[in-house]
Amino acid sequence: MTCDRFRFDIALWVENDLSGWRARRLQRHLRKCPHCQAYAESFRRHQATVKQVAAEPIDDTLAAGLVEAVMARTKSADAQKVQPVRRPRPVSAYRTAAVAAGLALALVAAWLLYPWTLQRPMDVPRPLTATTGNPVEKPGLTHPAVPPVNKPVMVKLLTDDPNVVFVMLSE
């Protein structure tokens, strides 16, 4: 039915929500279509009912004590501390797992990086090498004492539990 496409336009037109050219097209159609005229008239009556109901005063009992309840909820606490009533959120298993994984990663990273920090190349003077690859010492320059780096280092991490001790060994 060709009139079907005008149903949405009529729904807007009865409240002046239709744009210019669509309103003009609808008005041209309404002049020659009694079916749509009746539909528009029925729609107008329906909208009038909606407006009438919306304009009715609300029962006083609905609003009774509402302001007092709001003021009571805001009275005792500071403005920033008043919160709507919410249920406490349970601790998420995913959150616990993420924290545990983060701690494990931090431990592994510390274990991997610890020996590297003992052998910081900046502490060791770089030998001046010739094209032959043999180190050439400059006169007047002496190497500082280089700590032995091949000695294994043991790191103990103590926890609150005396039975649990993390031991890390590095070369």
Binding site: A54, I58, L62, A63, L66, A69, V70, R73, T74, A79, Q80, V82, Q83, P84, V85
Partner: peptide
């Protein structure tokens, strides 16, 4: 109240929602 009533469909919910709206407004 009126808006909450039409959105929620019953008076008890509308009253609860209205209180929450004004608490949020206060905050």
């Amino acid at each position: 109240l009126r808006t909450a009533l039409h959105l929620l469909g019953n008076r008890e919910d509308a009253r609860d929602a209205t209180q929450d709206v004004f608490i949020r407004m206060y905050n």
